[in-house]
Structure formats: structure tokens, C-alpha cells
Design a protein around this nucleic acid. Structure first.
Lengths: 367, 367
DNA sequence: CTGTTAGCGCTTTCAA
DNA sequence: TTGAAAGCGCTAACAG
């Protein structure tokens, strides 16, 4: 239909389109009288300024892009809220995009966002093949990397101290008496996975404990695997190429082997859940038979069976900080990026001393 | 910065901007020779067509808006994936917005989306005060309502059969021997809450069981409440006005009363979690002391303690169907909206016969 | 205090 | 087979 334009408003109010523009934006003085007429015309015509046209001339949209890698992960939704709340407070809107860890999808969205002339970008990059990202960075659009960094990209990073987080968690496990502690990780292309891996390795090496390949398991962090009772509800990413097994599948062999680890550190939210499924499948009780620590907390972790011991990140805060920093960049302020935020080990019920060590279960249920 | 425009490309290739436009869009014949020159110029200049400008003239953006009420709810993220996957397949992009059940925020995003000249809209409306929504509907932008319907809005709805879903679930509870079954619900302004409520009531009345006010509890569906160990990680919606208690708070009194219900139906994902927290607080074991069924399943429900018995919705599918239908609307096809999708009761471990009835626990753990 | 006018970067007739 | 030029709806000088 004929979308009403400022010209229509101008006609109806008997003024010029310039005046209409000015009463809308408050960008120069307009007499109370004409202002009233214009406003009335706007109301009757149900007029909405076309942001597209405006953006074309102002070269600014007051929109930022937020690109995350898995919208299904509570970590990112919590972060997104932080970003969004902060941006709204500043009069900016945020467009939310989900890449599903798929570089091609990332590329696609980066195109879209660039074409939409966003004023800034917050991104948790997939970490691979980031041509569009590099290209975007070459324009004047301010970018901040969220949670993880892309190789080749020179942009400030807002993240947490991953290495220390798992280092301390593994130390805790060692303190409990564990000697064989496996590490379950996702894509090696994402920097947090490497950082966490390094934390695991450092703790082990310092304690003269094995940290060899047989203790490192890789799995696709985007889905759980074959869980019969759930097969209909589990969402399978459309773009998943099945190159990597799910956590559930990846763990089968290790868990059934005679010298299986006595504890597992899962480097991701979803990996942690997959591990629990695998435990169930193999008839292992947690923490009696095997201990588990996951990276990243969420509201439901205490309700799990067992309540999850986790390394917790300040998710909402992370989003806030990233947004606030991006705004400074957009406003042209010269500021240092905030240093990485601290993480915290939250001890609940998924860890105990290894079986046969005579230790007790280390538990602190919610109550 | 000087973002490169089609003029730059035209200059470098020694052709007119019209030709540039046509090689980009394949909209008329261009000789292989000039086409090559143009493409090369595009490559060296790293040129990206400005979608803003294009949209201004074509009056189409190939972007749709997806507005949901709680990005933190796995239900909506799964639905979002369905929508997104489907739209990408059709060459459309989707802008994702989160209202947090806040009508003002909804209004804000609707403004934004309208200004961005979206080609279509999928929305789970907050249900209150939808002036912007109505206004948008008056333009020619196709709209489909997702999951729930807004009063006053004439737009097709893609949803599930809520009423039947909880009707059957409550019948199951009755079959187990329960007579006092409470209903925990969120905002009465959202249609699904009413539908679910009606299902509960119908099942109870048919069985001549009490369905009075003392069995209806209302709580804010957006957060869990005061859980000390979690106080730092629980996200509190910025816009929350604290008019309603959390599920956790709302249930205290009822659960401590002498004739507390023997079962609870929670009308929402997050309400279900809140209920579990409340159980813990009151020292009630589930399902031994009290049974629980929640509306909506998710990947983690089987890992809860106890594994959750739920009414499950086809989330991903719902998104797909909504997207597909919207595309038909956008393409001007005259089609009937699909009828509501079926839901399914999934029995796991959170229900048992009421204490003292001599019944057995009805359980089916993941294994 | 308000109107005229020149573009923003693109698509699309109309001509050649 | 390609160019010239008119506009899409808006903002921002520049005039008055």
C-alpha cells in the first residue's frame, strides 16, 4: 500500500517537509503552533519516519549487531540480555543473529549487518574463515569481540579468565584425590576451548599427572547425541555436517574402558549435559562412580541430578560490559578495553573423592 | 572511511552505475567482458551494495522480524532456530527481538522493525497494549502470531493445542489418584496461559474435583526468585516491576499449609523450575511427597532431579511452520493458516500416586 | 521562524 | 549491449 511519507504529513499540515523533519527530530526551533499541526498530521496519518531513508543520509542507524554462535545456549542468551538492556538505555537497538557455529552463516549475517549499516558490532566469532569479518573491520564500524577471539581480527576482546577458571577447578579435583581427569572439549577453532584446555593441562602437569591424548575427547558442542526418549525434541542444527560425534557418542568408548578417568571436565554447557547422558547410558553414578565439572553455570544447574559443580561466568555482566565498551568506541572515546572478568568455582554435588580412595562425597545441595 | 559505492565501482570498471547494478542483480544482459571488469572492480574495492539504499527504491528488504517474549526461555530459542533455518532457505534474513514480556519494549521493537521496512513479522505478542502492533498490521506488512494471540489483532496464529495438552496431563494426574491439583500460571494477559488454565479446569470439573481459587497460583514467569546460592547468576529482567512474586515466593504459603495439594501443574518452563526450588526450600521430595508436571519440554528436562514429566511441544517445527506460512503471505498466496500442532505428554519421573494412597511411583528414568 | 534544494546509494524506465 | 536520468524518503545546508 502507499506507505505515508513526510511529504504527506507536510501536505496535510500545510508546511514544508523540512519542518516536518525538524519537529520529528527536534533539530531546530519550530513554533508551538505549527508543531501542533505537524504532530496532529502525523497522528491521523499514522506516519512512521522511514529509518532506511534517514540512515541513507545520516549514515547512522543507531543499531548495533550482536552475533552469537548458539542461541540455544543459555550462556549467550544471558549475555544477550545484558547487551540489549544496556543498549536500550543508550537509545540504541540491537539486532540479534545466530550463527550456530557455522562460518558460512556467520558470513551471511555479517553481510546483512554491514548492508544494514549498523553502527557497531559485538560478536562471538566462530573463529574460522572470517573474511567478511575482516572486511567489516576495515570499514569504520567499531567491533568488539565477545567471549572469544578470532585469529586475524584486531578488535578488543571482552571475555573471562578461562584458563584460570579451569585451572582452579582441576586443582579442586586433584585435591579430592583424582589422578585421571579427562577433558571434554568442542571446536579447537574457538579460542575459549584452547584457553580452557590450557588451564586443564597446566594443573595436571604441575601435579605430575597424566595429560595425554587419551584423556582429551572432542565432540560437537552443538547437540547432545542419540538419546532415544528425546529424539523428537532435540534440535539438530540444520547445518551440522556430522563430522564430529556428539558428547554422548564421543564418551562411550572412554567410559567403558577399564581404566576410565575418575573425573571429567566438560568445557561447555551442552557438553556437560551430553556427559550426563553418557553417564546414564553407561550406568555410571555421578559423583559416586565418576565426578564431573562443567564450564558455565545456569539457572537450572542446581536442579540437575546431581546438582552441577561448575565454573561460573558473570554472563549478564559480560554483555553489559561489552555493550558499554562498544558505545564508547562508537562515541569516539579513546579507552582501554576492560580486562577479563573473573570466573568462580561453584561447588555443588557432582564431585566426590574417587571410588576406593576412602574419601567422602563433597556435596552441598541446594536447600 | 568513505564506504565505496556503486559509483566507485563504475568508475574503476569504466562503465555506468546502471551496468554495475545489473551485473550485481543479474537483471539484464551484460556482455561477459564488461561483467568481468565489473566483478574485478567489486573485488578490489571490496564493495558491498548498500541494502539500505536498495530497500529505499525496491521497497523490500528481504528481512523479517521475529519478536519473542523471552529469549532466555529454551522454548523460544528452539522456535527461533526453526524460523531462522526456514527463512535462510528462502533467501530471507531474520532480525530477532526480545521483549521480556514488557509491552513497552515490544512497542519499541515494533517501531524499529517497521522503520526498517521489514517484509514480514512473526510475533509472540505480550498481549497488552498493542497499539504499535495494530498500527503495523494496518500497513501491508504480513504478520503471523506465534504461540499466542493478541486480543484486537487480526492475524493468523500458529500455535499448539494448549487446552488439550494440559487437560490430558491433569487427567493423568487424576488417574494416579490425585484430588488436589494446583495450577501455577504466569500472566493472564497471554493467551496460552488462559488456554492452559481452561484445560486444567475442564479436567478437574469433569472429575468433580476442586478447582477453586485456593488452587490457582500466579507468579511472574520471568524469574525464579530468591535462591541464595544463585543470587549472582540469576538474571533479573531490567524492566521487572516486582508487582508479582516469583514462583518460588508464590508457592511458599501453599506448600506449607496443612492441606497442600498433592500435585502441581506448572504452566511454563520457568515456572516449573521455580516450583522445584520451592520444593527444595520446603523440604518436599518430588514425586514422593508431591507430584509435578510442567508445560513444555527441553533437552535438559530428563537430567533434572527428578526427571521432569512434561507436556511437550514441537518447538522447532512450530518455528518452521510459522516461517513457511509467513513466506506464503509475503508471496501473496491466499492460503489457510495451518491448524494448531499437537502436543504430547511425556512421562518421566516427577509424578507418583499421592502419599498414603498405596500407589507406586510412576517413573521412567533415562537410561 | 520556515521553505527550497541538493544529495545519500541504489534501481529502473527510456533512449540510444 | 549500454548510458542518462528520475526518483525512493529523508536530512542538512543555505536562504529568506
Amino acid at each position: 500500500m502507499a506507505r505515508t511519507s513526510s511529504k504527506d504529513v507536510a501536505n496535510r499540515a500545510g508546511v514544508s517537509i523540512a519542518t516536518v523533519s525538524h519537529v520529528i527530530n527536534g533539530t531546530r526551533f519550530v513554533s508551538e503552533e505549527t508543531r501542533a499541526k505537524v504532530r496532529e498530521a502525523i497522528a491521523v496519518l499514522n506516519y512512521r519516519p522511514n529509518a532506511i531513508a534517514r540512515g541513507l543520509v545520516t549514515n547512522s542507524t543507531r543499531i548495533i549487531g550482536l552475533v552469537v554462535s548458539d542461541i540455544t545456549n543459555p550462556f549467550f542468551t544471558a549475555v544477550a540480555r545484558g547487551v540489549e538492556d544496556e543498549m536500550i538505555g543508550q537509545g540504541y537497538n540491537t539486532i540479534f543473529c545466530n550463527t550456530d557455529e557455522d562460518p558460512q552463516r556467520e558470513d551471511n549475517y555479517l553481510h546483512l549487518l554491514a548492508a544494514q549499516q549498523i553502527d557497531g558490532l559485538i560478536i562471538a566469532p566462530t573463529g574460522v574463515n572470517s573474511d567478511s569479518l575482516i572486511a567489516l573491520a576495515k570499514t569504520d564500524v567499531p567491533i568488539v569481540q565477545l567471549d572469544r577471539r578470532s585469529p586475524r581480527l584486531e578488535a578488543p576482546l571482552i571475555g573471562v579468565d578461562n584458563e584460570t577458571g579451569v585451572y582452579q577447578a582441576v586443582q579442586y579435583l586433584i585435591g579430592l584425590g583424582h589422578r585421571r581427569i579427562a577433558f571434554l572439549m568442542g571446536f579447537e577453532t574457538v579460542s575459549t576451548q584452547i584457553d580452557r584446555f590450557n588451564g586443564w593441562k597446566r594443573a595436571l602437569l604441575e601435579a605430575n599427572l597424566p595429560a595425554g591424548d587419551e584423556l582429551i575427547i572432542r565432540a560437537d558442542p552443538r547437540f547432545y547425541g542419540v538419546v532415544p526418549s528425546l529424539s523428537e525434541t532435540v534440535v539438530q542444527p540444520a547445518s551440522h555436517d556430522h563430522a564430529m560425534p556428539s558428547a554422548y557418542e564421543a564418551l562411550q568408548e572412554l567410559l567403558c574402558s577399564p581404566d576410565r578417568p575418575t573425573a571429567i571436565f566438560a568445557a561447555t554447557n551442552q557438553l556437560t549435559s551430553g556427559t550426563l547422558y553418557a553417564f546414564n547410558e553407561c550406568g555410571l553414578r555421578c559423583p559416586e562412580d565418576i565426578s564431573l565439572i562443567g564450564f558455565d553455570d545456569h539457572d537450572w544447574a542446581p536442579l540437575f541430578s546431581p546438582p552441577l559443580t561448575v565454573v561460573s561466568q558473570p554472563t549478564y555482566r559480560l554483555g553489559q560490559v561489552a555493550a558499554r565498551f562498544l558505545m564508547q568506541l562508537i562515541n569516539g572515546e579513546q579507552v582501554e578495553p576492560p580486562s577479563s572478568l573473573p570466573v568462580q568455582l561453584i561447588i555443588r554435588g557432582s564431585c566426590a573423592a574417587p571410588a576406593g580412595s576412602g574419601g567422602v562425597r563433597s556435596n552441598s545441595r541446594v536447600d
